[in-house]
Design a protein around this nucleic acid. Structure first.
Lengths: 348, 348
DNA sequence: CTGAAAGCGCTTACAG
DNA sequence: CTGAAAGCGCTTACAG
């Protein structure tokens, strides 16, 4: 492929290899005319550095910070991503990077900010960020911008930032997919309950998008014509679930399908099981132990899933290639939206 | 990680680095006692070669042959795999391999054997094989065995061979997944038609497995209780389809669901459309242009898909790591079985 | 059977 | 602002 070496450029430009290197690495201290000439020749010869030689000589190790929500309690969705990042570490061999995790409590703004400060003091070369909390993430991104630290988003996306990339679900589409599955599972005239679980739904972008997508699906004339009942529940605690859902079921007797817009589907499943409503058609998001348990139990009928491990791998690769090879990734990279039932959940 | 160099081993063993290298690469010409001593020290120090240096010095390039069915006509399933293999070529950078495709006509034994002969004369270091034709593949594998050429299976698996790995669908499970989807899509008492399209179904292992898996699903008491009608059609030519299906529909009036056990679902879709039976619930396999067209048309309702690009990447990685790093992969690596409808087919 | 030496292409001080 | 030289860890021919 590339047989052009620094030496070849140097020869053609009539300078030493040291000078060529200075130009190529923008280390300054080169006369403007020389610089131009070298760059032109490098371009012409289509020079590509020999990475093996570079690695051998100076194992420049990048520091990459990874900021994600902590996987805790019943919600193990975020436990998968670290596996993907660790895979990445192996796959870039013979390169190495110094990777550090900064895990914040999911809906805890203070803890988010505490970790943000830790990252800044660590002075990474690049950051991977799951910007779940919109406001706090925006502030942090502005700081990265001013420090010229590149950052890549995973799982969620927020506007008005300069992230080099986003890897995750098209949440609007994800809402439509859940809608299409519940539509197939219940009769046309039955009502559908849409459940959002979060302390502050407004500050969690993808819940809104899934909700919008869900509703958009039913504007099609051949779909379910029942009521769509929308509720918000502040947490996945069983008491909170009961407090909201008991009155709903008391007043709506034709609900046959339920969609939970987040990974906390297990909480609604637990409620349905305890209140003897397992026969309702329940669709939710994300595949992990606690949700799988209810899927196998028959309480959850379908799960709409992302592929957290692959998302981590892709995000890492984009940031690493950006740092090491200066490649600019596609800004938004929407990932597969997978449909799981009890038959295909065993192979992820 | 590994800071131990050949030099360190040489010093501790009291020999030169040349000798250490001879031992490590089994180039012979070393006294048995020296050899033992060196190996022991290498083990003790946990020596790992510096790959960057190795690549820099001698860019040993492996020859890998890839033997797949040709993608032709309406059936473009096999057009995706080459994309994956080409991705692999980039991902192993800075390593290089000399990769060559040998594409045979799907159900043409002679063409299979012709390509097999070409591979043997090319003398590859390793082979990736889609062993669709059972008998012919077995013969070829025996030849690889006697030449000590390692080979990895993709898409299909056959017994009584020494492949280093298999990457593909658990076809039995794949049959169950199709069953679960058609079960959800039609009423409990309706009949289901199972369509197999192949000149010789017996010589195509995964069709049989899908069929068995499909039937096994309905042994569960809560599922569809209608008739399961099984037909075989020799090709995807519309006339062949008509000849078999016209009489079936004439005699079975309660068929509401159809499952096609292979990627040739488009052929049945075309038939349904032309015979004004688009309202039947049609489930088939594999996602590619021609099937997607009918999915968007509403004739195909669901497709059960593999991820050919990823399968290619994984298979390549297993073989390459085996050749370059001597790692032994898991023998069977079952891939995700994906469920697609018109809502999630856009993100693969 | 074994050792000493050259060189892969790059980066990094050092000298000027 | 620029060049000459050393050296990263390995492989390979050559000499003995």
């Amino acid at each position: 492929m590339s047989k052009v070496r620094i030496k070849d450029i140097a020869k053609e430009a009539g300078v030493s290899i040291g000078t060529v290197d200075r130009v190529l690495h923008k280390r300054g201290e080169v006369k403007e005319a020389t610089k131009k000439k070298v760059l032109k020749i490098a371009e012409k010869l289509n020079y590509k550095p020999n990475i093996a030689a570079r690695v051998l000589k100076s194992s420049t190790s990048y520091k990459i910070a990874i900021m994600l929500p902590k996987a805790l309690g019943n919600n193990q969705y975020w436990s998968k991503h670290p596996i993907g990042f660790n895979n990445s570490l192996e796959s870039i061999y013979p390169f190495t990077v110094d990777m550090q995790f900064f895990l914040y409590e999911m809906h805890n703004e203070d803890d988010f900010n505490r970790n943000a400060a830790l990252i800044l003091s660590w002075q990474p070369n690049g950051v991977i960020l799951a910007p779940i909390l919109k406001k706090e993430s925006q502030t942090l991104c502005m700081q990265f911008d001013s420090l010229k630290i590149p950052y890549a988003f995973i799982d969620s996306f927020i506007d008005d930032t300069n992230s080099i990339s986003f890897v995750g679900e098209d949440a609007y589409k994800g809402g439509r997919v859940a809608a299409s599955v519940v539509d197939l599972g219940i009769e046309k005239e039955a009502d559908i309950l849409l459940v959002n679980i979060a302390r502050n739904v407004q500050n969690v972008g993808h819940l809104n998008s899934r909700q919008k997508g869900f509703l958009s699906y039913f504007e099609d004339e051949n779909t379910n014509t029942g009521q769509k009942i929308n509720v918000e529940i502040p947490s996945d605690a069983i008491d909170d679930i009961k407090n909201v859902l008991d009155p709903i079921f008391a007043t709506h007797t034709n609900i046959k399908g339920i969609v939970v817009t987040s990974s906390r589907t297990y909480a609604v499943a637990q409620y349905l099981k305890e209140s003897k409503r397992s026969e309702l058609f329940l669709v939710g998001y994300e595949v992990f132990d606690n949700n799988i348990k209810y899927l196998k139990d028959g309480v959850i009928n379908y799960l709409i899933g992302q592929r957290p491990i692959e998302q981590a791998e892709k995000t890492f690769k984009k940031l690493f290639d950006f740092l090491a090879f200066n490649t600019t990734p596609d800004k938004k990279d929407y990932q597969p939206i997978s449909i799981y039932n009890v038959e295909n959940v065993s192979y992820l």
